[in-house]
Design a binder for these strands. Structure first.
Length: 734
DNA sequence: AGCACGCCGACT
DNA sequence: GTCGGCGTGCTC
């Protein structure tokens, strides 16, 4: 029996490989084209991988492709290959990977004209065709409008204005008669390019870094641009991007989620004087598609975007920049859990172009890659302008009488700072009023019914809220358990600190910046405007406050509770805390004013803190790397985390026990399997969560084991009774 | 992932 | 007597 020729199509679903479909009679479209295919009674969008295959299945089980959706393939060969690489590395189904990297507007069957505008123009036949339309007055009317518009043609808005609402039918008829043409044009939301700015002179280190990157254009090279806040990394990026553009190439600039502000986009647009598009989560599907098309067509020369912008098709890509490369938002935390930072390296290597990772506080992984000679380190040591380095000081909280968690020393420094006319930034990584509501009479503690977590009191809204599942209830006046009128709000969050600061320092203006105060659109901008204008001289907030905002008058930064980071459950907690301290320290004393950073702790002898204080980030890194090496944790060991969740803990655990036994059969001696164990917060939103940690000194054994585990796992009966996912190179173990 | 098929409880 | 619960299995 001869085998049937088929097209191989990657479809979304838990399939290890592509599915086979009977070809359409047309000429085969190129690989990367989207197809509409039937799948289990539905129609889905798949991506064509191969048109020359013969199926192993009998023809009776094959279904035909329904339609070819793309003339130009949506996935370039480059991105298709990168998707395959990523599917393999993250052990995630290729169809799901591809679905995740396509713009949302291209993932579903239906009209993909979203992001394009239709435009109609009159044809020569149309110019002489009025006679034929005597009995079609609406067509005649539309034709007159088109004739008046002449070569410019009309879009939908134009017809609306000329003919009112009901024009699509007559216009379609005109096209059918050959009296008009219909074209699709891209709606390109390009940043303005009019006000071109001139590059300021670079200092020696900036110039050297820019030259090194520029000289590497045209081939693969990886750079770690290591520069403290204010050292002018962006100027180096801009110089490298300009050099890339001068070669006729495109540049891709990735930024953390919180870093893509209109100001950043405007800065690139003004300097580069080429079309710049921004790709971020705030775009509507159609806008995102339009920007994506502009990039694919080569019209957009610079693409600025967050994580998913890594997947932008760029036919003339010449340079990739990953700003703030240590930022956790580069790792997708659900579904296809990829690291855009890591894949940027892979994309650059495969495409043969330089990649620049920039950070004042590089990830430990990146520093080890420098040590191993895989990246070239470029250091920007100086602070631009005449700013001075801030002074870091540990404030020992032990035995001190505290007011709202602030030590007398801290308060004295705060008073002095405000008296001298400066601003202060106070950092507390916990929002809400109080993290615990307890009853002094009976010991009741308000906990979430669906999570292993306490409810956080939010006083202004009079609510108790769970920060993990979002459930909320009224803040009770009496104890729900014993009815006593002795409820206590224990501990503090940013709302409580703000309240206290407002009582004491009302005249100086207090702004709180956290997720609660910035939820409303535009609220963050308003608060930042208050900070910049000096209306608010005291800024209190969570880590939102730390990222990317420059407050030139800030002379004092306070970390209220550094110990949270030092003793956090996660292995990266200290790294994040150190990065945060260094980043916020960079916000202090940028102008004439020397800054000071006070770090409150009950463990001033802690080795990580000590070395951070005495030797800076490099000292912290040395200490942290020694700990990681001893534990065999990243960057010295490699991890994969298999997570499972189910309505009962038993079901989640059972899956992981089964997975563990499969791993036992795989018998990879260099692989260490830890668990199953309950997740740090076992119950969350009513689901019980367990995890199995896989560790290995080298990637090889880990990936070999995963490659054999995954197909088996999908067919386990226990896998149906629990939701599960695999996280390769997990960001945290929560 | 979705969706259909398939056997056991409270309802028009 | 049905509508529907979600366990099980499949999708080229």
């Amino acid at each position: 029996m001869s085998k049937t020729p088929v097209w191989r199509v990657a479809v979304p679903g838990p399939f290890a490989g592509p599915l086979d479909y009977l070809p359409l009679p047309h000429e085969a479209p190129p690989p990367g084209a989207r197809l509409e295919v039937p799948l289990g009674g539905r129609r889905v969008v798949g991506v064509l991988l191969d048109t020359g295959a013969l199926s192993e299945l009998p023809a009776s089980r094959l279904k035909p492709v329904r339609a070819v959706l793309d003339r130009e393939p949506s996935l370039t060969p480059e991105l298709l290959a990168l998707a395959r690489w990523a599917a393999d590395y993250y052990h995630h189904p290729l169809g799901e990977v591809i679905a995740a990297l396509l713009p949302v507007a291209l993932r579903a069957v239906g009209d993909s004209a979203a992001g394009q505008r239709q435009r109609w123009r009159i044809t020569d036949a149309g110019r002489g065709g009025a006679e034929a339309l005597k009995r079609a007055p609406r067509q005649a009317h539309a034709l007159r409008a088109l004739r008046a518009a002449d070569a410019a043609g009309l879009d939908a808005d134009g017809f609306d204005a000329e003919l009112g609402g009901d024009w699509p039918t007559p216009v379609r008829a005109l096209v059918a008669r050959g009296f008009a043409t219909r074209e699709l044009e891209d709606v390109v939301p390009l940043a303005p390019t009019s006000a071109r700015t001139v590059a300021p002179p670079l200092n020696a280190a900036q110039q050297d870094a820019a030259t090194r990157i520029t000289q590497a254009l045209g081939g693969y090279a990886a750079f770690l641009l290591d520069g403290v806040t204010g050292s002018g990394k962006t100027e180096v990026y801009l110089a490298a991007v300009e050099a890339t553009l001068a070669r006729g190439q495109q540049a891709l600039v990735l930024v953390p989620e919180i870093g893509l502000t209109p100001q950043v986009v405007a800065r690139f647009a003004a300097r580069c004087a080429v079309p710049v598009v921004a790709l971020h989560s705030g775009l509507a599907d159609g806008e995102r598609l339009a920007a994506w098309r502009a990039a694919r067509a080569g019209h957009a020369r610079v693409v600025l975007g967050t994580r998913s912008a890594l997947w932008t098709p760029l036919p003339a890509l010449g340079l990739i920049i990953v700003d703030e490369e240590h930022d956790a938002s580069y790792k997708q935390q659900e579904g296809f859990r990829y690291s855009a930072r890591d894949l940027a390296l892979v994309r650059a290597q495969r495409a043969g172009l330089p990649v620049v990772l920039g950070s004042a506080t590089p990830a430990l992984e990146s520093l080890v890659n420098v040590e191993a000679g895989r990246y070239t380190r470029l250091v920007l040591p100086e602070r631009a302008g005449k700013a001075r380095h801030p002074r870091l000081e540990l404030v020992d909280l032990r035995g001190r009488k505290l007011q709202e968690g602030l030590s007398p020393h801290f308060i004295a420094r705060l008073d002095a700072q405000l008296a001298s006319g400066g601003q202060a930034l106070i950092f507390l990584n916990r929002r809400g009023y109080a993290p615990t509501l307890t009853c002094h009479a009976c010991g009741f503690i308000a906990g979430c019914l669906r999570c292993d977590a306490r409810l956080v009191a939010h006083k202004r809204h009079g609510e108790l809220r769970c920060h993990h599942c979002g459930s909320q209830q009224r803040l009770p006046e009496r104890c729900p358990a014993c009815q006593a009128d002795e409820l206590l709000l224990a501990g503090r969050g940013t709302e409580r600190l703000e309240e206290w600061l407002l009582e004491r320092y009302a005249a100086h203006g207090v702004a709180r910046i956290d997720r609660d105060t910035t939820r409303r659109k535009g609220a963050l901008d308003d608060l930042l405007a208050d900070a910049h204008s000096g209306r608010a001289r005291l800024l209190v907030g969570t880590q939102m406050l730390a990222k990317g905002h420059d407050f030139p008058e800030v002379g004092l930064v306070g970390i209220v509770e550094a110990d949270h980071g030092l003793f956090g459950v996660d292995f990266r907690a200290a790294e994040r805390m150190a990065q945060l301290i260094v980043q916020v320290a960079g916000r202090a004393g940028r102008a004439e004013r020397p800054g000071e950073v006070l770090i409150q702790t009950r463990h001033p002898e802690h080795a990580l803190l000590r070395r951070l204080l005495t030797e800076g980030y490099a000292g912290f890194v040395a200490e942290a790397l020694a700990e990681r090496r001893a534990a065999g944790f990243p960057p010295y060991g490699h991890l994969a985390l298999l997570r499972a969740e189910a309505p009962t803990g038993a079901a989640a655990e059972a899956l992981l026990v089964a997975a563990r036994s499969v791993l036992g059969e795989v018998a990879e001696p260099a692989l260490e399997v830890l668990g199953p164990a309950p997740a740090p917060m076992e119950r969350r939103a009513g689901r019980h969560r367990w995890q199995l940690l896989l560790r290995s000194d080298a990637r090889g054994p880990l990936h070999a084991a995963l490659a054999r585990l995954m197909p088996r796992l999908r067919s386990l009966p226990e896998a149906r009774r629990a939701r599960w996912n695999l996280d390769v190179d997990p960001q945290d173990l929560g």
